[in-house]
Amino acid sequence: MINIEGMERRISFMTKTIELHLTSDPPLLSVMRAAVSKVCELADFEHMETSKIILAIDEACSNIIKHAYKGKSGQSIIITCKIKPTRLEFILEDEGEPADIEKIKSRPLHEIRPGGLGVYLITSVMDKVKYSFGVDRGNRLYMSKQRPKDKTT
């Protein structure tokens, strides 16, 4: 006898993975945002939380384009989205210049000047943020956000 209810429950516990491949071209950021919006919807995030997560991923991609690839277009950015039972994870990978950990910091908010807010927004929005770097090239950024408690399966 097949326990359908139990089977559905096991399926819903599985990690759902979505992989987005884009090149380092700023006009593609709007496409990425639309895709991340859908991923957040699948993970049961509400509108305002979705907006903030989109902002964090957008800032991370912008940083890759600006700093890892120095504005050079056509380079690889891979975004892996994992919808896990209790959290949503994003892993961003590029093949650009490894970042200097000392330089990955936001400006103090009381200093009113243009720039330096991207990293602050990422760390404000996401629960966990972890950078790792290749020896010669490449960066990996892990970010996660707790899923809404009343809707996690």
Binding site: M48, S51, K52, L55, L109, Y120, L121, S124
Partner: peptide, 11 residues
């Protein structure tokens, strides 16, 4: 609301 949120997050 979502744009206001960016202003508020960055104070």
């Amino acid at each position: 609301d979502n744009v206001r949120e960016v202003f508020e997050l960055t104070r």
